Amino acid sequence: MATEVWLTEKYYEEFHERKDNVFSDDQAIEVYKDTQTLRANWPQCVHQPPPEVGTRSGLYYVKFKWPTCQLRICFGARRENGVDKIIALTCRTKQELSKGNSNGDREWYRHIDTHGVDYWDSYRRGLLKSWKIYP
C-alpha cells in the first residue's frame, strides 16, 4: 500500500524559519529520515501508534529531542483514492512554546488544538497550499 507525505505551506514556512536558527542542517536531515521511516510504517501507526507517535484532537505528532531544542511536528492523515496521505501541518519547539515560564507540553497540546486543527480544516477544504514530497 502506498503512503504519500505532503507538506503544507504553513509547515514549510515554520520549519524553514526555525532551521539554522534553532536546529542544524544535520538535525533537519534527521527529520527527513524519520519521516521516511514513518511513511514506511504507515498505516500500522494508525491502529497501534508507536511511542514516538502521539495523537491529539484527531491529529498526530512526533517529537525530536536534541541537545539544542525539542522540535515537535503535527500532522494529519487521511486516505484518498486508496492512498494513505500524511500531511505535515505545523511545527514548534518546546522552548518557544514554554516561553521560559509555562509548561511546553501543555502549550504544545494547545497549539495542536488551535493551529493544528485550523490548518487541518483549511487543508481539507482546499484553502491551504500543499505539495507531495514523497510519492
Rank of each mutant, 00 (worst) to 15 (best):
Y109K: 03
K63Q: 08
D118M: 14
R125D: 12
Y60F: 13
E13C: 00
R78A: 00
V46K: 11
W6C: 03
C74M: 08
P43L: 01
I87V: 15
L38R: 05
S98M: 00
R56E: 05
S57H: 12
P43K: 06
F75G: 05
N81M: 09
E14P: 01
A28E: 00
E52R: 15
R18A: 12
V53R: 06
W108F: 06
C69Y: 03
E52H: 14
V46I: 11
G104N: 04
T35G: 15
K94R: 13
R56S: 13
L59D: 08
V62M: 07
S24N: 06
C45I: 03
G54F: 00
C74T: 11
G100Y: 02
E30F: 05
H115Q: 10
D105A: 02
L71H: 13
R92T: 02
W120S: 09
G116S: 07
E30M: 03
E14R: 09
P51L: 05
R18H: 10
L7H: 14
Y109I: 02
G104P: 10
P67Q: 02
D113Y: 05
F75M: 03
W42D: 05
R110D: 08
L97H: 04
E14Y: 08
A77S: 04
Y12I: 08
N103M: 01
Y119R: 00
E13K: 01
D20R: 12
G58N: 09
R125L: 12
T8I: 07
W108S: 08
